[in-house]
């Protein structure tokens, strides 16, 4: 049995969703055109994941096994709609950037995956930490990917457009919008994701080898 700290930290490296579990790739590729899109999507998913994990683990002894998936989906969908409405009301620009990908959190396999594989078998405390860890790992991955793509693609970093917190890292000439447009196009997302997977595998291989030696 893992310790409580391990339940939390496993999501940050060991099982970081897009790279290790290789789950939730659709939003990973779609919304990481900017840093803001990355962390916004990550935090929205984290909220849904933590809430659904808490409710599902609390109800795990009541929910009949035969209708568990239906029940999980109802719970997940409820939190997704709550997230969508709250974001529309309070962070309208972010909600417009993410658009249809917020309602699509319902079908993000990380959430149903954690519900089925973890929350339906573990207690509330552990499920909360698991959701938080995996969610923040997802946020971290999306933010890094978004920052990388945006920086290479446009030379800018949008932290939070609503508060005008944009940084221009590499100034471009007048009238020039893109530094390397490929990076903010969909194929650039695949290349970036592949490069980061490679990097992560190299690092973990190195550390495994140095441990063995």
């Amino acid at each position: 049995m893992k310790t409580l700290t391990q339940e939390f930290t496993k999501g940050l490296w060991e099982q970081i969703p897009p790279f290790r579990l290789v789950l939730g790739l659709c939003p990973t590729l779609a919304v990481t055109k900017s840093l803001e899109g990355g962390w916004g999507m990550g935090l929205a998913t984290t909220f849904v994941l933590v809430c659904s994990n808490i409710f599902i683990s609390a109800l795990r002894n009541v929910i009949p096994p035969k209708v568990r998936i239906a029940t999980f989906i109802v719970i997940i969908a409820t939190f997704v709609v709550i997230t969508e409405l709250v974001m529309k009301a309070y962070t309208p620009m972010l909600s417009e950037t993410l658009g249809v990908f917020i309602p699509l959190i319902v079908v993000n396999c990380i959430i149903l995956g954690r519900a089925e594989a973890f929350a339906s078998k573990n207690g509330v405390g552990r499920s909360l930490l698991d959701g938080l860890g995996i969610g923040l790992g997802f946020t971290l991955a999306l933010a890094v990917l978004g920052a990388l793509r945006e920086l290479l693609g446009t030379g800018k970093l949008t932290m939070f457009a609503q508060a005008n917190l944009d940084l221009t890292i590499i100034p471009l000439g007048e009238g020039r919008e893109f530094l390397f447009k490929f990076m903010v196009d969909p194929p650039g997302a695949f290349v970036c994701l592949g490069a980061m997977l490679l990097l992560m595998n190299l690092i973990s291989e190195r550390s495994a080898r140095s441990k063995a030696a």
């Binding site: 239906a70 029940t71 109802v74 719970i75 969908a77 709609v81 709550i82 409405l85």
Partner: peptide, 28 residues
Amino acid sequence: FMAVVLGVVAFLAGLALSGVKGMTTPII
């Protein structure tokens, strides 16, 4: 029992959603 559990979960979900919708609609 399955019907009751699913029904109760869906009912509570609907209740929560109509509450949140009522709060956010004027702001939106």
